[in-house]
Design a protein around this nucleic acid. Structure first.
Lengths: 115, 115
DNA sequence: TGCATACTTCGCCACATGGAAAACCATGAG
DNA sequence: CTCATGGTTTTCCATGTGGCGAAGTATGCA
């Protein structure tokens, strides 16, 4: 079984490219075929195919082929897992700040009592 | 001024490495010097320095040197900007699903009225 | 059967990345 | 001044990435 950390690597890596983020943004508005995804960008199909594979490895999208067209769709769980990591650490930072504040205010209170 | 999209590239790229995410996680619990950050990992200082630079380019951390020690600290705005992108698109996906659901239920209702 | 369509794979290239070793500052302690 | 300490820079290497063109594969239509 693949490590959970490694999954995050692949997800963040997938999101680190503007073309791939645009693909994700596009798929938020509905499924699309490979050809439809390629249209807005000035890149060749082979390149776009690689982007799609990177997004799949990162668990952000899924795709299935019917006939000769491949339809891609968003996998919201992929976005959520990266978001979970971020929110957890933002929360961690915030709570640390809170502890620091209460600590400082307690010191201030104690000192004012010393006067 | 650097493009906003490019900023996201750098931020996501910075988070795409497990060592760098560990550094961010460490800094959530308080500032640390370069040496302190290096300790938990089995990597050389030069490599860690590069990671620090990548994190700085991504706007995730800041660092200042006093004497011969450099102290690194988290820049929460960096985490927030990436989180903003994710949450916006997760929301976009959710609202699209909602529209789809209401649309389907409306069709179902209309059809039941046809009976 | 023939042919266009829609991907897909296959090299190939230029460049970025993660890693280490070694040599190089700069500062604080004696 | 001398030297250990804490970073920093330089150089190098193996691997990965984004891009392309060309060729290959598999449908679907006529």
């Amino acid at each position: 079984m693949e490590n959970h950390e490694h999954r995050l690597d692949l997800a963040f890596t997938a999101l680190a490219d503007p073309t791939r983020r645009a693909i994700v943004a596009r798929l938020c508005r509905g499924d699309a075929t490979v050809g439809e995804l390629a249209q807005p960008f000035q890149i060749g199909l082979p390149t776009l195919l690689k982007h799609i594979h990177v997004l799949q490895r990162g668990g952000l999208i899924a795709s299935a082929k019917t006939g000769r067209v491949r339809t891609c769709s968003l996998t919201p769980a992929g976005l959520r897992s990266t978001d979970d990591w971020l929110r957890a650490h933002i929360a961690s930072w915030d709570s640390r700040l809170d502890r620091l504040e209460t600590h400082l205010s307690r010191i201030a209170r104690d000192r004012s009592q010393d006067d």
